[in-house]
Design a protein around this nucleic acid. Structure first.
Lengths: 99, 99
DNA sequence: GACTAGGCATAGTAACGCTAGGTGTCAAGT
DNA sequence: ACTTGACACCTAGCGTTACTATGCCTAGTC
């Protein structure tokens, strides 16, 4: 998933604020199983995105389990749009080369 | 270009047999500059693809300059089709997650 | 009591391709 | 003559990135 991880994570959280486990699950489901991110992929990435000011987090306890809910910051939303543009450019370029 | 390099190279050579320098150039041009592979990216990759039996090569000298012309093997053509399918599945999956 | 699902976290590593350097030919400019 | 730039190949070493493997904890179920 090299290079596109941030895009996926930001987009999944943009839909609605989620905790890490739910982010992975949402991505797995909406991609129909094609993209199945391990937790060891998701958590460090979320931590990094928060460190970069693109996400903010807050703890919540639900049914005895603690969850760290992430939401997009303003910068995160801007970054998401940028990622989307880059994704479009990238796929267009690959398409042009390979057809 | 992580993960998609082989697809690009195979596709470029599938159009017509080329030498390394021309492969990079063809990709740069057909992507309108969006994908600009360094030679240090291209040559090791071609070497690897040949080692994997997906490409075969032959030397040719043109105007005092030696060129190593690559062409797809049968396995290379099969692999290209596989790469194409994976690319489609991948983009569909990302699209589904991010829209 | 064991197992599954939910939930977070991190150390270590492997994959991958890019940076930066090298070799050499030829043509065009100065 | 000399330099510059395009053409053409090659490689060692590194850095980024995400995955593997593992650990910890709670709650529910068989």
């Amino acid at each position: 998933m090299k290079g596109h991880l941030d895009f996926l994570l930001l987009a999944a959280i943009a839909r609605e604020p989620r905790h890490g486990y739910a982010v992975a699950e949402a991505i797995r489901k909406s991609s129909d199983g094609a993209i199945d991110l391990a937790e060891g992929t998701v958590y460090p990435a979320l931590y990094r995105l928060e460190g970069a000011g693109l996400l903010s987090s807050s703890w919540k306890t639900v049914g005895g389990r603690r969850r760290r809910i992430y939401r997009l910051t303003r910068r995160g939303r801007r970054r998401l749009e940028q990622e989307r543009n880059e994704w479009t450019a990238f796929t267009n370029a690959v398409q042009a080369v390979t057809t």
